[in-house]
């Protein structure tokens, strides 16, 4: 086969293909099915987050009523309720951006750039905003726990506050490994396609730099874990 013949070979192959022609009804069912694109995943997680945050905000208002004799607790709950609604307000345009990304019918190069820009700016902001839901949930849960067990919020000693803050930080950091892994995969895929499309070493450099920082971060993360376990073991065995 000569290279100039590939169009003819392709034509013949297509003529001989035994394709299943979809009916109009089948195509309608496809249209209504669930997308598996990552933008859809982001939209779903944002929708879920809106609902959880709205529930949390309403719960804070309930707490304001429950703790009617405790002004400090009421002020804290009011502040957290406003903060939660504020976060929903900040998240809204990110949802719209994900919808617009889904509807884009630009050229391949434009779409790759749009998606990469979305990942680099909006994705981390979204994960940060979604990650804040966990500490808000822990806080609201703690307030309800205090109310049902003691009928009031006791402001504990410094050690208890440190433990509580640690729990809040851990609950916030909980989603980070998944977030980073998803970002890494999608960013690499898009950058690889752009590198191939634009014949530029810019994206290859970006991928190399990403891999380098990933290695450094893994080392830092593992070192911190080892140090943490060593300190814990030292305290326990002392």
């Amino acid at each position: 086969m000569e290279l100039d013949d590939i169009q003819k070979v392709w034509k013949q192959a297509n003529q001989e293909q035994n394709l299943h022609e979809y009916s109009s009804d089948e195509i309608r069912s496809f249209r209504k099915s669930r997308s598996r694109d990552f933008t859809k995943w982001i939209r779903n997680s944002l929708r879920m987050d809106f609902m959880i945050k709205a529930l949390i905000a309403v719960s804070y208002f309930v707490l304001i009523i429950l703790f009617r004799s405790e002004v400090v607790t009421q002020i804290i709950c009011a502040f957290l309720a406003v903060l939660t609604f504020g976060l929903i307000w900040i998240e809204r345009p990110h949802y719209t951006k994900a919808v617009l990304l889904d509807q884009s019918t630009e050229s391949l190069q434009a779409v790759l750039h749009e998606r990469l820009a979305f990942l680099k700016t909006f994705y981390f902001r979204i994960q940060f905003l979604v990650g804040l839901t966990n500490p808000l949930l822990v806080t609201v849960g703690s307030f309800f726990y205090y109310y049902t067990k003691y009928g009031r919020v006791s402001f504990p000693e410094i050690d208890d506050i440190l433990v509580f803050i640690s729990i809040l930080i851990i609950s916030f950091l909980f989603t980070i490994p998944t977030t980073a892994s998803m970002y890494g995969f999608h960013a690499r895929t898009l950058q690889n396609s752009l590198a191939s499309l634009e014949d530029s070493d810019h994206w290859e450099k970006a991928i190399r730099s990403y891999n380098r920082s990933k290695k450094i971060l893994t080392w830092i993360f593992v070192s911190l874990m080892v140090i943490g376990i060593a300190i814990l073991a030292f305290i326990l065995l002392k």
Binding site: M1, D5, I6, K8, Q12, A13, E16, Q17, N18, L19
Partner: peptide, 20 residues
């Protein structure tokens, strides 16, 4: 899902298509 003939008038065999 391709079921090509062994060889056609143009001379492109099943192997040609598979190789492409």
């Amino acid at each position: 899902n391709i079921q090509p003939a062994d060889e056609n008038a143009e001379g492109y065999s099943k192997t040609d298509i598979e190789m492409l």
